[in-house]
Amino acid sequence: MRTDLQIIEQWIKPGSHVLDLGCGDGTLLDYLQREKRASGFGLEINPDHITTCMGRGVAVIEQNLDTQGLQNFDDQSFDVVLMTQALQAVRRPDKVLDEMLRLGREGIVTFPNFAYWRLRWYLMRRGRMPESETLPYRWYNTPNIHLCTFKDFEALCHRKNFRIKNRTVVDGQHQDRWFSRLWPNMLGQIAIYRITRQED
């Protein structure tokens, strides 16, 4: 399993009821329900991923966050709401974060850090929109319409009064490296955050 998923997995208590927004092929949910007796659902729009989920026994619901929202889920009906590598691709990340913490006691979010030094260097040297292994698209066809940095994300959390319970970083291969922890906004490629509402 990818390192970022291994990190997330450690933050999820056994028996949790989990909602995974953009669950992909269901790797994480499959692991959580087998190893942690977790229950819950994944939302996905990619037909191949949906088929894979169904084939492996992961409960997957075809639902588009951007067009359908999450109104069909009740307040505080999940222990954890996850979103891995999808925040930057939704129309209103701020509203999705609000929704995550409406539905769940806790939210776990991962996203590519746009302030990673290689991206900065790419932009500075070439003067063109960066492309990398984590962001392998052209500016005109990228699904990543709301890229942000660690600092941007933390500023948003602060503004919204979200509490950051944990944060960590991994590199493009999803490996945990000591140097990226040292200076995450510069050296971290993928950010992993665990957030709750302030009052918790």
Partner: peptide, 13 residues
């Protein structure tokens, strides 16, 4: 949605 609210295991496409 009713199944989700009742925490039944459901897949939908």
């Amino acid at each position: 949605n009713a199944m989700v609210a009742a925490r039944r295991k459901v897949s939908y496409a």
